[in-house]
Structures are given as structure tokens and as C-alpha cells.
Computed example of a mutant assay.
Amino acid sequence: MKKYWNWKKTTGLMMACAVICGTTGTALAEEKQDDKASAVETVRTYEGDEGDMKLRINVPQVAGKDGYAAEINDEILHLTTDYEARADWEVAQYKEAFLATGGTEKEFDDKDIQVYVDYDVKSETKDQVSFVLKAYNNMVSADYIYECYNVDLKDNSEITLEELLGPDYIDIANESIKEQIAADDSGLYFDEEMGGFTTITPETKFYINEAGNPVIVFQKYEIAAGAAGMPEFEIVK
């Protein structure tokens, strides 16, 4: 169960999102009637200034009114509105401290603080879709969202690593990841003693690529230095 920030104040844009997302999501599910329509569509898009930050927002939603699709849509709504509200609060706190220590309004404006919410459909067939939700800003690099969603469209259910790789999926993935790290000569990956990779878990994030293979994703700094970004490992079936 994810924990969400509880904010007493949000912008008018964020308050409106609950209504917009709910009504548009229902229409989206009803309108998706042909195989060419994507199961993932933009339910809210916005680009412009909001207080002291610039927003570039594209929020996705999965077609479907109930079950796993509804669960995903509810989570995305909470994650994205929560992230925007948190960014708004962080910018306000940062500005207050900046001005209090001698900075000027113009100097703060020149920082050009931007907040992004977007998504990327990694693969899609008539039976399944895999996509990633991303949110980040150019003020606090450690404050970001990267969530993977893998949906069985036939059963309106979550696709798991075990379904893709079989009952020995943990051992299969571990062996492949360790081989790929051993073959890497960048020197960016941590040793196990330094907190490097040891094993995946049932909660490890992954998406499905166009080849139908799971791609396991680790958070920045989780198993490697920051220069490695978010390491990804394709597990060939």
C-alpha cells in the first residue's frame, strides 16, 4: 500500500483534477471500441505557469471502469496530484529560504523551476499493455516517480514476473542481472558489500518491452552510482 502526502491546500488545477479524471475516464472506457485504439490514453494534459513553477503535465489512464484498471487509475490520480502538490510546497519553502538569505525575486525566477508528469507506453498488443508513469522536477533530483504498470487486457488483471518467467522467476532474473552487471565495465555498479545487487523480490519494478521480455528497473542509487541513472535489465525469456 502506497503512502500519499496529505495536503490541506492544493491549487485549483489539482482540485479540478478529481472531477476531470473521473468523468473523462468513464468516457474513455466507453469510447474504446476498436482494436486500433490504445488502452492507455491521456486523461489530463496541461502546460503553463502555476505560481513559481512551470508545469508540463500528461496524465494517463487505462480504459476500464472497475477491477485492476480502476485500481491503477485511482493510484495514478493520487500519485500525480500528490506529486504536484508536494512540488508546489517544496518550491514555496525553497523560495522562502532563498529570499531570506539575500536572494532576489528575479534570481529565483531565473532558476526556471519546472515540474513534469508524463508516461511512456513500452509495449501494447490486443491482449496486454505495459506503460510507465514518470514525474520529476529540475529542483530536487531525488524527488521523482517511476511506476510500471503491466496489464492483462483480457482478464483486467496485473501481469507478474512469475507469469512471464515461470515459478523460478527470481532465480532466472537474478542470474541474468548478475551476468549483465559482471559484463559491464563502467565501474558504476556497487559491490554487494556496498549495497549492490543481491536479488529481486516480488515487488521489483519491471515493464514489458516490444519483444515481450520483462525489463527490470532499479531506482537511481539503488544498486549503482548516480551516473548510471536508473539501471535496466532485459530478461530474455
Results as ranks from 00 to 15, higher is better:
residue 190 F to Q: 12
residue 236 V to L: 13
residue 171 D to M: 00
residue 211 A to D: 15
residue 100 A to R: 06
residue 186 S to M: 08
residue 142 A to C: 02
residue 193 E to K: 06
residue 8 K to E: 03
residue 97 A to K: 15
residue 195 G to N: 02
residue 35 D to A: 00
residue 9 K to E: 06
residue 92 A to F: 00
residue 124 E to D: 07
residue 55 L to M: 07
residue 108 F to K: 09
residue 27 A to N: 15
residue 151 V to H: 03
residue 41 E to Y: 11
residue 6 N to S: 01
residue 233 F to S: 09
residue 154 K to M: 01
residue 102 G to L: 14
residue 222 E to T: 13
residue 21 C to V: 15
residue 111 K to L: 14
residue 206 F to E: 14
residue 227 A to E: 13
residue 34 D to K: 06
residue 143 D to Q: 07
residue 236 V to Q: 14
residue 119 Y to N: 11
residue 187 G to Q: 15
residue 29 A to T: 15
residue 204 T to W: 07
residue 218 F to A: 09
residue 196 G to D: 01
residue 4 Y to Q: 03
residue 52 D to I: 00
residue 196 G to T: 08
residue 34 D to L: 05
residue 81 T to A: 00
residue 89 W to F: 01
residue 174 N to K: 02
residue 187 G to T: 14
residue 12 G to F: 02
residue 158 E to Y: 04
residue 220 K to P: 09
residue 37 A to D: 09
residue 139 M to P: 02
residue 23 T to P: 10
residue 147 E to Y: 06
residue 40 V to N: 10
residue 53 M to E: 12
residue 80 T to Q: 00
residue 69 A to Q: 00
residue 181 I to C: 06
residue 138 N to F: 02
residue 140 V to Y: 04
residue 180 Q to V: 15
residue 29 A to Q: 06
residue 88 D to S: 03
residue 7 W to N: 05
residue 72 I to R: 03
residue 213 N to G: 10
residue 177 I to P: 01
residue 65 K to W: 10
residue 161 L to E: 12
residue 38 S to A: 11
residue 120 D to N: 08
residue 54 K to S: 07
residue 144 Y to S: 08
residue 176 S to V: 11
residue 24 T to I: 15
residue 19 V to C: 05
residue 85 A to Y: 00
residue 72 I to V: 06
residue 167 P to E: 12
residue 102 G to S: 14
residue 230 M to G: 01
residue 169 Y to K: 10
residue 231 P to W: 09
residue 210 E to F: 02
residue 225 A to C: 07
residue 154 K to T: 14
residue 44 R to C: 06
residue 117 V to M: 10
residue 58 N to H: 06
residue 97 A to D: 15
residue 191 D to T: 09
residue 129 V to A: 07
residue 208 I to L: 03
residue 177 I to R: 07
residue 222 E to Y: 11
residue 184 D to K: 12
residue 31 E to Q: 13
residue 92 A to P: 03
residue 78 H to M: 02
residue 89 W to Q: 08
residue 198 T to I: 00
residue 157 S to T: 10
residue 122 K to M: 14
residue 17 C to R: 01
residue 161 L to W: 12
residue 141 S to G: 02
residue 213 N to E: 14
residue 101 T to R: 15
residue 167 P to W: 04
residue 123 S to Q: 13
residue 225 A to Q: 12
residue 212 G to Q: 10
residue 44 R to T: 13
residue 60 P to A: 07
residue 225 A to W: 08
